[in-house]
Design a protein around this nucleic acid. Structure first.
Lengths: 161, 161
DNA sequence: CAACAGTTTCAGTAACGACTGTAACTTATG
DNA sequence: CATAAGTTACAGTCGTTACTGAAACTGTTG
């Protein structure tokens, strides 16, 4: 007995939550977000563009765009079956680490802006105090995230490798 | 001799870079972003809404909205001078720590979504493997950011207090 | 090489969000 | 209580973006 499993309604609601999260967090449009959410729970894990379109209620044309976005972002991977022309898309093995890494890098990229600001105003001038505050935080943050991801990689290697 | 200082053109360009960053990163509209950038380098540090409007080339009405956004986000603080009715806005002492803290919290908030997904599919089911991958990363990340900010607070206290 | 399944491109549309200008409101001053 | 500086609320406009439907394209099968 494997239990009843989620209802289609529950699945839809969860997919919508995923889409909402990536819309807010990564600026992903609704349909790519829904396709991503769907690919996280669909059974089987591989789905054609047409199947995904039907599942989330969008046009096939929209799925093309959505899948391009997801492919470019490294979220999904294309796959083929012998004797079939259809491309079956599946969630990448672990898109999350890379995506999150990128987001944090983007966060600390403010360091370049503050650095240029300090150059402009003179790093030691009183007027640059406000910028320096920001510069210190983002510089420190930048020095923290490197080791942090090293710890993650070590942990992953320990579990998988 | 304190040097020539930046040209208005250079200031404008830098302000635009700040605005661009916060538009991409925090979803801030252009004008709030520009106002924020301006408040980072303006001299004197306190500015009225009218002054800011002139400096970044926006209407006063827009500045009202922009300043509300910045006040709500904790970026700026209002100030008054005796005998004057004008409100002078200045950059908060250190908005960056709090803002960045919020952003990282938002990042790890995906944990709630993956958690619900695991409940829905059954945490140990084969179908939940994809969700579990995400859940592990964000759970770990969540456990990392707490201590990380503690280190920052300690560092700050050591320097300031 | 013809037929066809599937994918992609593109033009058009609808909805959304930001910004402006004006008008109403608030509050300190004489 | 009248005045004036400044702030706020609002209606309208402009630009952008996501999405759809139809047509063009690609590549495999018989």
């Amino acid at each position: 007995m494997t239990g009843p499993g989620p209802t289609p309604e529950q699945e839809r609601a969860w997919v919508e939550r995923v889409a909402g999260f990536f819309a807010r967090q990564n600026g992903l449009p609704p349909i790519p977000g829904r396709a991503l959410g769907r690919l996280m729970i669909c059974d089987p894990p591989e789905q054609s563009a047409a199947e995904l379109a039907a599942a989330i209620g969008a046009s096939r044309a929209s799925l093309t765009t959505a899948l391009q976005v997801l492919l470019a972002g490294g979220f999904v991977e294309p796959g083929h079956r012998p004797g079939e022309r259809t491309t079956y898309y599946r969630l990448a093995d672990d898109p999350w680490t890379e995506v999150t890494r990128r987001r944090m890098a983007a966060l600390t990229s403010f360091l370049a802006v503050t650095g240029e600001g300090l150059d402009l105003l003179g790093a030691d001038s009183a007027r640059a105090t406000r910028i320096r505050r920001a510069h210190e935080l983002f510089g420190w943050l930048d020095s923290e995230v490197g080791p942090m991801w090293q710890r993650w990689d070590a942990r992953r290697e320990h579990r998988d490798g």
